[in-house]
Design a protein around this nucleic acid. Sequence first.
DNA 1: GCACCGGTCTTTGTATACACTTGATCACAG
DNA 2: CTGTGATCAAGTGTATACAAAGACCGGTGC
Lengths: 212, 212
Amino acid sequence: MRASDRAYAALRGDIVEWRLPPGSVLAEVEQSERLGVSRTPLREALARLTAEGLTAAQRGRGVVVTDISMDHVRELFELRATLECRAVELASVRGDREVFRQLHRELSGAPGLLTNADPSRAAYYELVGRLDAAIDAAIGNSYLAQALKSLRVHLVRVRRLSQDNPGRLLEAAREHATIAHAIARGNAAVASAATTVHLDNSLDHLLSTNTN
Amino acid sequence: MRASDRAYAALRGDIVEWRLPPGSVLAEVEQSERLGVSRTPLREALARLTAEGLTAAQRGRGVVVTDISMDHVRELFELRATLECRAVELASVRGDREVFRQLHRELSGAPGLLTNADPSRAAYYELVGRLDAAIDAAIGNSYLAQALKSLRVHLVRVRRLSQDNPGRLLEAAREHATIAHAIARGNAAVASAATTVHLDNSLDHLLSTNTN
DNA sequence: GCACCGGTCTTTGTATACACTTGATCACAG
DNA sequence: CTGTGATCAAGTGTATACAAAGACCGGTGC
């Protein structure tokens, strides 16, 4: 694996996990020493992060981790609704129905995953990730898939803002099951509507648990 | 201006203007000598182009200019319809109506711009660019604006595929005028519908004049 | 004649040195 | 005491040297 890839993965992980919170200044020499790579591959990693919007170049002061305000979250969800609604519509038309039938079955059993035995909800988030991946594969449009992928980078970071309580997660799981069910039936209109409802609920929950 | 910015601008221009057609291999030493910069800033430029999707890194063989097939164009227009329909909807709600009234007036006079005196259609494309910029400013969503911006890079390249005839350009100008008019009236549904029609016509024209 | 293997050579990936821009701090003048 | 200017330091931007990895080509064996 290339050093620039390692640096990129490490920095991106640190940013989305909030180990490098918004506003952190990423000095080149400092980070290159911390990650054990030279400045050249580190700069390449920083350029990729900046292109994705996770960092921004401040002239003369290096790059800083971009801020995430509630206004940004609202904008992010506006784009998310646009892209994901179209994605589920296309998936409803083009997707392999059996795949989504299976995902619907698994999502219906999601309450069993949300026990206290797994406080990090790893199994639940893995299942949701599989739904996202199935939609990506079903839409058959690399440009749309790419747009969704770059969007999700920011969403992972936002997730940390949401103090997920079990009640909301159960609700979200039901909403995901509804979406999978609609896609499995090939009902694009319902899939899109269910996605709109799901995202509105998610944003509402996010805004209600964050005062700023 | 930084050398990496110059290299990026030069390469991107060469690619979208088809001076570097799809499939061109961009060797680092060759391009750095051609553009008069060192390999380090050139690599930065190539990384940015690759992040945008204009080039792709072929392991061991350097980066090549990405191909644009008709399937890619179809996918591109699918994403374009998704983003631009939402953009004009938001612009209808949030935009400054006077701005779009003025653009509508200018677009209504577009036939006057499409005379034989200006075979490159520079004045016409400048006007359409102003409409795009006005929509970008009106949507008030930096993430959506960014997605549109990265999309338009590819669209400029595709434009070269379209052997624009005066008849189609006149039709397109009328469609743009309709969109601007709908936004000026704050009618989101009509603006979205007009955009859908316009993009379908554009894609249809593109596909009919390109057999491959 | 075809496929496989090894060597060479081109090309990318990384490190480091150097120059230049920029931001800060301190001193001096008003 | 405040504002402005100069000097200094820190950090980015660029160039180049070196290392490593993959591709191309010739040769040989089957």
